[in-house]
Amino acid sequence: MRVAVQEAPFDFGAEAETFARGAGGAGAVVTFTGVVREADSGAMACMEIEHYPGMTQKALEQIATEAISRWDLTDALVIHRYGRLAPGAQIMMVATAARHRVAAFDAAEYLMDYLKSRAPFWKKEILRDGSADWVAAKDADEDALRRW
């Protein structure tokens, strides 16, 4: 298991390749990447991601450990960035490796649902006119946790 919280960009291809190579015994590897979406108005200059340094790593490790035990994963990877990110930039990625496909997909969805609502990150959209808005959590994100 690897959990990284970093400001720097990551190389999705290289990370996925290394992860898949190291996932001994797995028949399935699933990867997901989150990308900074352009606001509907097209007015967003960048996304600023704040986090809680002492807690973030620990919270992500707890979430990944739970996923590994629940789906008997052979490995899991979580990378999440913070700081200012331009539209189109990669924010985060998860990867899961399991003996079978369904477990790898489900575990990746679980990781995404939990790190959306239970890892201490907060997003702020900074618009081209200099104004800024904190992204509000959605009820749907909280509801998504109930399916697990």
Binding site: P120, F121, A136
Partner: peptide, 12 residues
């Protein structure tokens, strides 16, 4: 020792 207050989280 440490108490933190924040809005609902918006990671991912």
């Amino acid at each position: 020792r440490e108490v933190a207050f924040f809005p609902p989280m918006t990671g991912g």
